[in-house]
Design a protein around this nucleic acid. Structure first.
Lengths: 240, 240
DNA sequence: TGCAACTTTTAGCCCGGACTAAGAATCATG
DNA sequence: CATGATTCTTAGTCCGGGCTAAAAGTTGCA
């Protein structure tokens, strides 16, 4: 035997494994860039490095390579921004992540706070077919269990940026709409407090000297630190 | 910020991602070695290379590294054999693969012939927790949909090597017990013929000159080539 | 406006895991 | 039992994607 072993795809991604994907590292960078790229402002190397737990030098290298692949626009020393094709790729990964999270919670009994890490790995290995089958099985939900919108299979995403609980004035009554899924510990604590999407919360008088907020949840008075209240997105309760 | 970025696990596998796993490449090698290592005979570099679609040189390198990690015993120029710990690791991956295949078919509507590739990727990304949840959801099946036994979570595997359909004499009546899951095309064709685990098959007079076998399946006479009949494992039908 | 402090990039290295080319061991056969 | 064919290993390269150390660019402030 011993054929010349000519690898058939000289140009494609061999690490990707999912169908038509980028390498795992590339996918992680795109997701992180999109996450940080709020309101069109370019993302700095260092913030990206912090987000990804990489050194700034590593980030510069990868960013250069992303720029060569046309996935981002990079203005050296002035940050990076997703291109149209990078945005498409990022949305595809975000869809995977959110569909997988939803499925794991709905169908396999995962808890709200432990699902993130698993999805983080599966999103790079799952094929489009698997993701679509999961979405199908769940009836194509529009929101994931943390309240984040799931991009459509065609890459459409309707973002509705709700304000943070931490910004709500004393006396407001609000409904929790979305909770960032990234921090396991904080999520676990929020779950203990009963702060899920859909929960009604009343904002009480804060504790003095930049202390924690005080809120009423399900009749109970609770206090929660500001960096906890920051990851909770809420909507004013109009029926109130 | 910019902490020194001291990677916390200097000694562990960073590519693995699953919990307590080896790198994807290592897992693939272990699986392949076990697959080829029938009856204690050591596995040659070249057969492993063929199985994995790698060059023999690459295989030698990796085998050396596996030997250093204590996963295999390597007698240079005389082949390789799994050590006890390599065997354990291999069984763990095989369990993952078979549980995942079972789940995809049972719960997500995958077809018998398309499931292999998906499982091949997920087995490296799924955590033990996910695999156990899938097994749980399915009621801890003993066999996967191709009829292959699923190792237990503790790594026990009861192998029952049934003879190949291709070896059955004319006139035998047998029940299909297991079909190799590796070849998508052949699986698809077997499905068309109706040769699933559990199917009763009568072996008829073969066509002359090393021609295909002739069999009766569900009342229909069919012929199938010998390399197709080779991947079908059968049991003599005693109730006949 | 000029310099110190910070951020970003470059340069050079490492590791895993492929590959090719070439040398060493084994086997098969006269 | 020698020698050619076959198989396996060594040597050296490459690529992705990390890292550190050092250079370069940007910025804030006197």
């Amino acid at each position: 035997m011993m054929t010349p072993h000519n690898r058939p795809e000289p140009d494609s991604d061999q690490d990707a494994d999912g169908d038509r994907g980028h390498s795992r590292a590339v996918e992680d960078y795109l997701k992180a860039i999109r996450h940080l790229q709020r309101e069109d402002a370019p993302v700095s190397t260092s913030s990206l490095a912090q987000q990804l737990d990489r050194t700034p030098a590593s980030v510069t290298n990868m960013v250069k390579s992303l720029a060569e692949q046309g996935l981002v626009d990079h203005e050296p020393y002035h940050g990076v921004r997703l291109s149209a094709s990078g945005e498409r790729a990022a949305l595809r990964i975000i869809r995977r992540h959110r569909v997988i999270e939803s499925y794991l919670i709905e169908r396999l009994g995962y808890s709200w706070d432990r699902v993130h890490a698993e999805a983080e790995r599966l999103e790079h290995a799952a094929s489009d077919e698997l993701v679509e089958r999961m979405a199908e099985a769940l009836g194509h939900p529009a929101l994931d269990p943390h309240g984040s919108p799931i991009p459509s299979a065609k890459g459409e995403l309707t973002e509705e940026r709700h304000p943070r609980l931490s910004e709500m004035p004393e006396g407001a009554t609000v409904i929790v709409r979305e909770v960032s899924d990234a921090d396991e510990g904080r999520l676990r604590y929020l779950a203990e407090l009963g702060l899920f999407p859909g929960t009604r919360v009343e904002v009480l008088e804060p504790e003095p000297y930049e202390g924690p907020m005080r809120v009423r949840v399900a009749g109970e008075e609770r206090s929660l630190g500001l960096n906890l209240a920051e990851i909770v997105r809420v909507e004013p309760d109009h029926d109130n």
